[in-house]
Design a protein around this nucleic acid. Structure first.
Length: 271
DNA sequence: ACTGGCTCCTGAGGGC
DNA sequence: TGCCCTCAGGAGCCAG
């Protein structure tokens, strides 16, 4: 679920409360996430001061002097700030408790997320080492996409969702960016011109930034650190709109599976 | 080197 | 009401 805008919304919500705070405890209810929560963490963390709250792709990184917590929200995860002694709800799997009493509660029905720990530079962690550029930073350009797509037959939508190419773009925003760029999702990545990739890179930047401004997209589970949903869903042009008229030309929006993911597009506007 | 397919997990919704 | 099937925002891992 959470793609870059939702993770960034979460980061912005928790950062002011976590920066400079001291960890009192890590309470674990369910250590069996995508990978087991490291068993030594509850002994390692107390007393550590949170020095940084960063995001890399869809990963959240909480930096301390002893190491860095690596957090991923998977498909259905969310983080909420909670008052002291807040009751545990079903699917609350762990909580970071600060010395102020404030809690950071992780909720994830599907348990595809993770909580890991690294004592070296997090960029060198196996999960992060091969990640592509951030789509909202200058290294992400049409020229970059065009160069990396050379000779590749994979559908451009799958290419755009490959975190080794560019991070943060999941199924919703891949659909939306391709619609805005006028590119058919199943077009082979290597058969798209530089000019069209420049449009695509711009569409990616525009749609991600617009969604961040709306607090992300909530389909079912996502809430920000205060427990509020995001409001970008109403701005989605094609995702989840099979059969509805294209907002540009009125042609019916189509849906088809592509790479095991629901793919929405306008057959008239996207070529 | 690429590619597509499978997998983890719970819950919601539709058809019967 | 209940059962069974399909699908859902991710992405690592594997075989071919």
């Amino acid at each position: 679920m959470p793609e870059l805008p939702e993770v960034e919304t979460t980061r912005r919500g928790i950062a002011p409360h976590l920066l400079g705070a001291t960890i009192a405890a890590l309470e674990i209810r369910q250590p069996r996430l995508r990978w087991p929560v490291p068993t030594q963490l509850p002994e390692t963390l107390p007393g550590q001061v949170i020095r940084a709250v960063r995001r890399r792709g869809k990963y959240l990184l909480l930096g301390t002097d002893a190491g860095t917590l690596i957090l991923h929200l998977g498909m259905s995860g969310s983080l909420r700030l909670t008052p002291p002694d807040s009751p545990w709800r079903k699917h609350d799997h762990f909580a970071l408790r600060l010395t102020t009493g404030l809690g950071l509660r992780y909720h994830d029905p599907r348990r595809f997320g993770c909580l890991l720990w690294t004592e070296t530079a997090p960029e060198q962690h196996p999960l992060l080492a091969a990640l592509g550029p951030e789509p909202l930073e200058p290294a992400f350009t049409g020229g970059y996409l065009h160069a990396h797509a050379r000779g590749r037959r994979m559908a451009v939508k799958s290419f755009l969702m490959d975190s080794r190419i560019v991070v943060g773009i999941g199924n919703i925003y891949a659909n939306e960016a391709l619609f805005r760029a006028g590119i058919a999702p199943n077009r082979p990545a290597g058969r798209i011109s530089l000019r069209r990739y420049e449009h695509l890179a711009q569409a990616v930047r525009t749609v991600l930034a617009a969604s961040i401004n709306q607090g992300g997209t909530t389909l079912r589970d996502f809430v920000d650190a205060a427990g509020n949903p995001g409001y970008f869903r109403q701005t989605l042009q094609v995702y989840g709109r099979a059969g509805e008229p294209c907002p540009v030309c009125g042609t019916g929006i189509r849906v088809q599976r592509l790479g095991q993911r629901a793919t929405y597009w306008c057959p008239q506007c996207q070529r």
